[in-house]
Amino acid sequence: MDILEAEVGNIVPLELIEQQLKSKSYKLLTFTHVDTSTAVLNDAKSIGALGKKYNVLTILDGVCSVAGEEIKQEDWGIDVVLTASQKAIGVPPGLALLVASKNAMQTFEQRTSPVANYYGDWTNWLPIMKAYENRQASYFGTPAVNLVIALEKSLQLILKEGLDSRFDRHRRAGKAMRAAIKALGLDLLSKNEQVSANTLSAPLYPNLMDTASFLKAVNQEGVILAGGLLPQLKNSYFRIGHMGSVNKNDLLATVGAIESALKNNGYSHELGLGTAQILKHF
């Protein structure tokens, strides 16, 4: 297995990915669409095209992107898209979801070595799925019934909104949040707009900010933010999720809480600059 890495806040250049694919024969090309730890967005469409060009299976980790960032799995040639229920899908945590292409299914059926992970072995799940399609009873394990019902409801709401409208709403939310953060004089971990995710943002703290006091102050305003996830930069940035059913009022409340917390922790800025950007984009 070969791992390609980029500097924090950026993506691996497509030229480097293609160069690696040229260097030897690979079976799989795996990548994260939106990196949860840095709020960086990969170019899934172009990576899918490289997978098709070099005849490798492409696997997209869409935990922070599915139902928030645009994905055209079939058109882009992505073989497997994986996600979880608790992010932009808008369901409580507990479900692992995936969609596999015919190419991926065929490759699995032709494999000669056993799957090492029992839970992840499609051999256990495929009979259940096929029985469901045929409206027949089949059993592998007790399903998370409440979560499956919640998933159905969430998918109905997603389709009612319309995928194009949903993707556009997330694009506007992402742009609005990044504009608000920059208006407050803060930098972002992502290097530029092209690699910035629309489902979450990762602003850098101001210099000498008491990070624990800041997050506590935000929490007291009724908003919960996540701290930094990268060990080497844990106290240098925080993360804001804006995915799923997030609307203008949610964004205003979040930015307002950030502005208040910054002010209360000694950061000098004009109140209202961030919220003005949210209103401008919505």
Rank of each mutant, 00 (worst) to 15 (best):
G68M: 08
P231Q: 11
D61C: 04
L233Y: 15
S236H: 10
G120V: 01
V40G: 01
N264K: 13
I224Y: 10
D2E: 14
I128Q: 09
G274K: 04
N10D: 15
F238P: 07
L82R: 02
Y205T: 00
F214T: 04
A150S: 09
F238H: 05
A131H: 08
T112Y: 09
V40M: 05
L271T: 02
I59S: 05
L151F: 13
E133T: 10
L262C: 08
A212C: 09
K280D: 13
N146W: 13
D187V: 01
R166Q: 09
D187N: 11
S260Y: 13
D121I: 10
A253I: 06
A96H: 13
P127F: 12
L230Y: 00
A257R: 00
E74K: 04
I278C: 05
G94F: 14
A44N: 05
E5L: 06
L208T: 10
L225H: 01
Q277C: 02
Q220D: 09
N42G: 12
L16H: 13
G244E: 07
S101L: 03
H242K: 04
S196M: 06
S113W: 11
T211A: 14
L262Q: 08
G266I: 10
H242T: 03
D210K: 13
A173I: 06
E109A: 14
Y118I: 13
D2N: 15
L97F: 11
L4T: 06
K72D: 12
L29M: 08
P13M: 09
G141W: 12
P203S: 13
K160E: 09
A84F: 12
M209A: 04
K248L: 04
G62C: 06
L21M: 05
N103D: 05
E161S: 02
G68A: 07
I11A: 08
A96L: 13
N265F: 01
T254A: 00
H281Y: 15
L82E: 03
P143L: 07
W122H: 01
L41V: 00
P231H: 11
L271W: 06
K53H: 00
R172Y: 05
N264A: 14
T254S: 02
I3K: 14
T83I: 03
A173H: 00
L184P: 01
L41W: 04
A104H: 04
L188C: 02
A176D: 02
L82F: 14
K263F: 15
